[in-house]
Each structure stands twice: as structure tokens, then as C-alpha cells.
């Protein structure tokens, strides 16, 4: 009998990146997925109230934020490709640009929250806004964490670290493309 590496034949060998980052991604998707399903479930109790509350949201700003985040994801993906091919300066630049786009997302989100606060809209104004602040606030916290992660992995420019950091950033992107239509667009 010959010795074989521990990973030989594992079904997870085909998974791009570390298994643990996928565990994190799936965990986060479950949390946000449950939140969005609960939002639509509670909406059944007061569709008119939810529609009226949704009219206070700035759909165009959220649409711009979608473009900002998917563009940031694209830059991060290009950054990961660059570090794999040893182009470290290009990788650092792309990852920093991706982080910068994340900061733009947060700035627009901050302006959105400030606008709500100016209208006297808070967490307890309506169940719609309870979910709105919880889901988008939790997502914004992930964006902030992702910016820090991107900047850290950009500084070190190690392939495995960049791959994991960029995968986290794509998870943030993935969550947003589900949050945006459910919270902001569905009537």
C-alpha cells in the first residue's frame, strides 16, 4: 500500500479556494437568505404598508450602489488573477481600487441613512424599516469588513490570502444583488 496525501480524492478538491472560506460564504448566505425570506413573509401581513414605506427609499442611489459593487467585484477578480500570475503591483492597485469602490458604496449608504434620519425614519417607524436597517446595516458592516480585508491582502499580496479575501468580497457582492431587488424594487 502506498501513502497518499490527505486531500487525494476529496470531493472538495475541485472547489476553488479554501474550504473554510466556502463554509463562511454559505453561512453568510444562509443568514441573509433567512432575513430576506422573513422580510417577504412579514410583508404578507401588510403589503400596502410595505409598499408605502418602500416609497421612502432612494431606488436610483441603490441602483448606483449595485453598479459600484459589481464593478468593485470585477476589479477584485482581476486583482486575484494578477497576483496568481505574479503581477504584484497590478494586483495591489486593482485590490486597492476595489476597496475604494467599497468606500464609495458605504458613502452612498451613509447618505441614504442620513436622508432617512432627516425624515424621522428609524428602526421602529414600520416593520419594513426594521428589516431595512437590519439587513442593509448588517450588509454594510460586511462591506466595511471587506474593505479592511482587501487592503490587508493587497499589502501582503500572497496568492492564497488574496484568493480568500476576494472570495469574501464576492460574497458581499452576491448578497447585495439579492438584497437590492427584494428590499428596494419589489412592489
Amino acid at each position: 500500500m502506498t501513502d497518499r496525501p490527505d486531500t487525494d480524492g476529496s470531493p472538495f478538491d475541485d472547489l476553488p479556494g479554501d474550504l473554510m472560506i466556502w463554509v463562511l460564504i454559505v453561512s453568510e448566505l444562509l443568514v441573509f437568505g433567512a432575513g430576506l425570506a422573513a422580510f417577504l413573509g412579514v410583508r404578507l401581513t401588510d403589503p400596502a404598508g410595505f409598499a408605502a414605506a418602500q416609497d421612502h427609499l432612494h431606488r436610483a442611489a441603490a441602483g448606483v450602489n449595485t453598479v459600484v459593487l459589481v464593478t468593485s467585484g470585477w476589479l477584485a477578480a482581476l486583482g486575484a488573477q494578477a497576483v496568481e500570475t505574479g503581477r504584484l503591483a497590478r494586483a495591489r492597485g486593482l485590490l486597492a481600487a476595489a476597496a475604494g469602490m467599497g468606500a464609495v458604496f458605504l458613502a452612498i449608504k451613509w447618505a441614504e441613512y442620513a436622508g432617512k434620519a432627516a425624515q424621522g425614519i428609524g428602526v421602529e417607524t414600520h416593520p419594513f424599516f426594521t428589516f431595512y436597517y437590519l439587513v442593509t446595516g448588517f450588509h454594510a458592516a460586511h462591506v466595511a469588513a471587506g474593505i479592511v480585508v482587501l487592503l490587508l491582502v493587497a499589502a501582503r499580496a500572497q496568492t492564497r490570502e488574496v484568493e480568500a479575501g476576494v472570495a469574501f468580497w464576492h460574497m458581499v457582492d452576491l448578497v447585495w444583488v439579492l438584497v437590492f431587488p427584494v428590499i428596494y424594487l419589489l412592489r
Binding site: 476553488p16 459589481v70 467585484g73 470585477w74 460574497m171 457582492d173 452576491l174 439579492l178 431587488p181 427584494v182
Partner: peptide
């Protein structure tokens, strides 16, 4: 709109996350 969100999520999983 939900179908478009599903298509976007699939694109991110398959291309960005390299599935």
C-alpha cells in the same frame, strides 16, 4: 426582477467565485 436577481447571483457564483 426576481428572475434577474437570480441570474445576477448565478453569474457571481459561476464567474467571480469561479464555480
Amino acid at each position: 426582477i426576481l428572475a434577474l436577481a437570480w441570474a445576477k447571483a448565478r453569474t457571481i457564483l459561476n464567474a467571480y467565485l469561479r464555480l
